[in-house]
Design a protein around this nucleic acid. Sequence first.
DNA 1: GGGTTGACTGTTC
DNA 2: TGAACAGCCAACC
Length: 109
Amino acid sequence: MESKNFFDDVYDVVRQIPEGRATSYGSIATFLGTKLTARMVGWAMNACHGMPDVPAHRVVNRDGMLTGKHFFGTPTAMQELLEQEGVKVKNDKIVDFKKVFWNPSDELL
DNA sequence: GGGTTGACTGTTC
DNA sequence: TGAACAGCCAACC
């Protein structure tokens, strides 16, 4: 892992998220070792624009709610992307988030 | 180098 | 049950 900084590390983890799956900021932060930096993960995602390899739409908050959908340019882009991958979204929230939840510590560990 | 911000999380009122 | 407050770390100005 050439994790130069936190951003690069976050991108690397998000990039490992399989299609049709989603994870939470806290999980990524915890995997990185600093579970208290969940907000930083969101910040990293804010800078992920221009990185097609970073599926930010697969990263949601602990409730599975698309908190960052507003940052996708269109408030429905995030939901559409998830639905295209087979993830059902209802009221800006991922349906059966527990099923589609992808734990980095469980796959990358 | 110091202060502010942030797509969060957990606890408390 | 629902909403509000505090905490933490790292990047940006």
